[in-house]
Amino acid sequence: MSETPEQPTVNQVARLARIHLDDQQLTSSGEKLEQILEFVSQLEQVELPKDVEPFFGAIESVNAIREDNLQTSVPREKILDNAPESDGEFYLVPPVFRNTDS
């Protein structure tokens, strides 16, 4: 955990997160990432009892469950209203594949 990500790793993370960063942003992001990872590496020092269960949050409570009842859906025009591109029926997105391959 103390090893800090190299430049290519920052690149990979940016790709995994689908965030375009230019070279300069990659460098500065890498530096900040390094700085924060350095800081959080103090967690390594925390000694844990063997059987400690992780706490993922949320109050430990009863099952939150709903009955299988239908509810009215939101009218399509209201749902599509926020879409950057739609044809009134579908969301439209650029083609999944690049045009270059056969």
């Binding site: 969301y91 997105v93 650029p94």
Partner: peptide, 9 residues
């Protein structure tokens, strides 16, 4: 393949 894809949710 140039055309937009349509999404139905």
């Amino acid at each position: 393949r140039r055309q937009d894809s349509k999404i139905d949710l």
